Each structure stands twice: as C-alpha cells, then as structure tokens.
Amino acid sequence: MNEFFTNYGLIILLVVLLIFMFWSSRRRMAKQKLEQEQRARQTVPGAEVLLQGGLYGTIVSYDPENLDQPAVVEIAPGVDIKVHSQAILRVVEPSDAPLTEDDFEPEASAPVVAPVDDFPTDDGARVTDDKSDAADPDAEPGTKPQA
C-alpha cells in the first residue's frame, strides 16, 4: 500500500487538483453569467447607473441581447456618451427621498453668536482684542498699551 502512494500519489494529487480547478472555474463562470443576466434585466432606459470610470448617468439605450453594441448613457442633460455594455458597473438604487435645499438650511433654534470685542479675565478685568498690541514689543499680550 505504501508503495502504491509512493508511485502514484503525485499523479492522484494532480488529477484531484485539476478536477477541483475545473469545478471551481465552471462554478465561477455560472455565477458571473447569473449576475450578468440580472444586471441586463435591471439595465433599462431611464435607470441610473454607475460606470467603471466612476461616472454616474442614466441609460438612454441598451440592448441586453447584443452586448457588443454600445450602450448610450446620459451623464448630463443633453450630453450622451456611448460606452461598452460591460462598462456599466451596476444599477444605482435611488434614495428614498431626494435632498432639497431646505435640508441644508440651519435650524431656527440654533443660537447665533456675534463676535466679541473684549474678553473677561479671571480677575474680572476686561481685555480688549485690538491690534495695537504689536506697537510695543515689550508689552504683555492681551493688555492695552499705555498712553
């Protein structure tokens, strides 16, 4: 028995490896074909898509039967481009509610803070923030210059 594996073990291992590679390749191809068919069903005129290059657009024309024919995608109003059908990465699902300008307005309850010209210190004195501190380089920061 030991002599059998010594003589034929490597051949058996190679055959098992080839069978596994063939099986996994077929399985991967079937999965890709299923995904491609599903994408073709979703890719209809009017659907928003993401292209391989990162561009978003809307399908104008697409022939799922002939994948060699280019698809026409509108990337801006009046701007149509022809792309290979495999350049369509995926169909983008629309969001539940489109954002409007009102979504970006500040809330009415948010307090509006005006800039402050002077700051209280720990000892209760007020220090003004004027730019005349630079006139005297020996003066302490945050104090008013002496007249």
Rank of each mutant, 00 (worst) to 15 (best):
Gly54Pro: 08
Asn66Trp: 02
Pro94Trp: 02
Ser132Ala: 15
Phe104Thr: 09
Asp129Met: 14
Ser24Lys: 13
Gly46Gln: 09
Val79Asn: 09
Ala71Ile: 02
Met1Ser: 15
Glu65Asp: 14
Val116Leu: 12
Tyr62Lys: 01
Asp68His: 10
Asp136Thr: 12
Glu48Ile: 10
Asp80Ile: 00
Phe20Arg: 00
Leu50Ala: 14
Ser132Trp: 13
Asp129Cys: 15
Lys33Trp: 07
Gly9Glu: 01
Ile88Val: 15
Asp130Gln: 13
Arg126His: 15
Pro111Asp: 09
Gln69Ile: 00
Ser25Thr: 13
Asp122Lys: 14
Asp103Phe: 03
Asp103Met: 04
Ile11Thr: 09
Arg26Asp: 06
Gln42Lys: 13
Pro145Glu: 12
Leu17Cys: 05
Ile19Gly: 00
Pro64Arg: 03
Gln36Tyr: 02
Glu74Trp: 00
Gly142His: 10
Pro70Leu: 00
Leu89Gln: 09
Pro98Tyr: 05
Ser109Met: 10
Val112Gly: 01
Glu35Gln: 12
Pro98Gly: 03
Gly142Leu: 10
Thr6Asn: 13
Glu37Trp: 07
Ala139His: 09
Ile59Asn: 01
Gly124Val: 10
Glu35Val: 02
Phe4Asp: 06
Glu48Gly: 05
Asp63Glu: 08
Val91Trp: 02
Thr143Asn: 14
Pro64Glu: 04
Asp80Met: 03
Leu55Thr: 04
Gln69Ser: 03
Leu14Thr: 08
Val49Leu: 11
Pro64Val: 03
Gly142Asp: 11
Leu50Cys: 11
Leu10Asp: 04
Val72Lys: 02
Asp80Cys: 04
Ala139Phe: 04
Thr128Val: 13
Asp122Asn: 13
Pro111Ile: 05
Pro94Gly: 02
Leu99Pro: 00
Glu74Met: 06
Val79Ala: 08
Gln69Arg: 01
Asp122Glu: 15
Pro77Ile: 07
His84Asn: 01
Glu74Cys: 02
Gln36Asp: 07
Gly54Ile: 05
His84Thr: 00
Pro64Gly: 04
Val92Tyr: 02
Leu55Glu: 08
Asp118Gly: 08
Val91Tyr: 05
Ser132Asn: 13
Pro64Asp: 06
Val79Asp: 06
Arg126Leu: 15
Ala125Met: 12
Arg26Pro: 01
Glu101Pro: 00
Lys31Met: 11
Gly124Cys: 13
Leu14Gly: 10
